[in-house]
Design a protein around this nucleic acid. Structure first.
Lengths: 194, 194, 194, 194
DNA sequence: CATGAATGAGTATTCATTCAT
DNA sequence: GATGAATGAATACTCATTCAT
């Protein structure tokens, strides 16, 4: 029986399907936020909901895959910061700004990310842990140089970056606010020279 | 003594109903978060959905009423801070902490509050505006005394308080994080003595 | 006891209330069609739904009262036709046109009118019967003069007038159609000279 | 023989479901009119509301499907008229009578049909358009033979057929009226020999 | 592996009507 | 006689998830 052929075809089809689903899902999440209908995504990708479900058993799996695809981008940012920014304080600041942007990729993305921090079962957990680790590297370096407070923890900074991203999420359209909040994150609302 | 009760009821059995609905809604929101079923609340209060709808045309109306009922509490806090805390920086810090607690009354509450900031039509809008004004009073005083940065705006601080409250949400149960985030909000992650 | 005074006041209030309700209901029906919410009308008139219900136990009672108020207008039309149009065929045609307009006063009005013809219990029944009688007068005269077919009945003509009004009801915006249908009603779709 | 049945089911259990829904819907609409509850139909068919919704996204879709199933019947009537009635006037008359019957299949059916004429988006629109076209064919032929007035339009005749069907509705149960109205439609209320 | 039909609980919302005040 | 609070059945519609084909 020529199943060999069939199986190969299926595998390549599956791969193509998976990638296509991701493309469609990304567009859908950008347009409708992360709570958009999964069935709608399946329909948009030309597959049945069962196929979507097979590839991504939950919404978080889909999100995790989408974020993994973006790993490269923020990874490049991290490398660029590491290699070009000598001031560790500035480096941490830029990294946190990158995180805020990253979590703002889709409307409502901060929510499942926050949830994933507390639930080790979520497919987004490892994603978050990875970025918490990165944050810790920048933070540790900053602490060593004395430009970050010793009592600040990487996990909290990551969570705050999500929070700032969440706060931005509103139909704010106010760039000033966005910057101001990141600024408060860095310096607090107390004056630098006090 | 019983007549007193009766007279109140005579004036309006609706009053009793309304209060009862609010009680039930409060319990429901505490247990199931602000997205809990309104019909369930009506059922729990022993009234038809129409009655709930008559008193509170939208979920936000219900939330606004619930928060108004708590006005007294946070108002008292504000008064206490004003009268007992002489340091304006500390006063602002305590006020923001009170706000974070306030927005954490129900799971998911920060979300509609954030939305209400951008929509002038929401019944929660005036609630938010009131607290933004209070924040501005504390902030202005702090600026006058030079213990708050001049480029920080009350609206952004309020939004950040919501964001911290949001970040606290879920099964965080980590008090250290909660305090740490409020602390970062005040001082940033940079050392005080720089 | 000064109930005499009170009763007089109530009566005059009631009268004013009734008239005011009718005014508001007319506006409401014109804007929202005859299926518009009765409670909304009560609210608009500044009375409780119970008051509306007391004056007009059913929607049809309200419609009947509204149509009675218009009796004068169509009555005047009838008188004018009778006194100025000598040709009985033309008179019947004009009367039917007046009926079509009358039944088109509110969106959806033909529906309860049609129902009222078959139900003797409806408050609209007597209204309809009255106009059927008027139609019969015009029709009989036309028959006597040989300008109306003997096998046509007044009730059917009235019903057809309602039907034409119903057909117009759609967002037609097509005056030609409106006239054409009335014309078919008079002459049929067969040529006059055949 | 049972396999035949099974194979059909294999090809699509949905087919059986769809047909069953249509059967139930037809009975329901006949008994309760076209405004009957869709959920009730779903329940009656033993399917969830989602299944009904999947097959027929809107009430009009369901009606359109039901009418399509009757296409055959009225199509046969049209063919019979065309082939057996040589007099084009009589042919048009019979076709219009067939339309009146068709639109009277369910209580309240004329209403959505009328609405569909003005809305190009309705699933019933194409159905209506088709029958307007058929009407035009009969009408044009009649005009060519001089037995229909040249200023009568097919769309208006179709609408009038709906109107007559509408007028027949409710508990009329008066066959004489029904015939009379169709007759007026053809000849008007003026005598043939004038 | 893919399909997509089916599920069916769940939610918000409306409104004529009643009746205690 | 007036009020208006309460009723509560009823309806349309959604969507994650399953599973027979």
């Amino acid at each position: 029986m020529p199943q060999n052929d069939t199986e190969r075809a299926l595998r390549s089809d599956a791969r193509r399907n998976r990638d296509h689903i991701l493309d469609v899902a990304e567009r859908h999440f950008i347009e409708h936020g992360v709570t958009g209908s999964l069935n709608e995504i399946a329909k948009g990708a030309g597959v049945g909901p069962g196929t979507l479900y097979r590839h991504f058993p939950s919404r978080d799996d889909l999100l995790a895959a989408l974020l993994t695809a973006r790993d490269e981008k923020i990874g490049a940012q991290r490398a660029a910061i590491t290699s070009t920014v000598s001031n560790p304080g500035e480096a941490l600041a830029q990294w946190l700004a990158a995180l805020v942007d990253w979590a703002g990729a889709f409307d409502g993305l901060p929510e499942p990310l926050r949830a994933a921090i507390s639930e080790t079962n979520s497919p987004l957990s490892s994603t978050c842990e990875g970025y918490i680790t990165s944050t810790d590297e920048f933070l540790s370096q900053a602490k060593r140089e004395g430009v970050a407070r010793r009592d600040v923890r990487a996990r909290d900074l990551f969570l705050l970056a999500l929070a700032v991203s969440w706060a931005r999420g509103a139909a704010m359209a106010d760039d000033a606010s966005a910057h101001a909040m990141s600024d408060v994150l860095r310096h607090g609302w107390t004056p630098a020279a006090q």
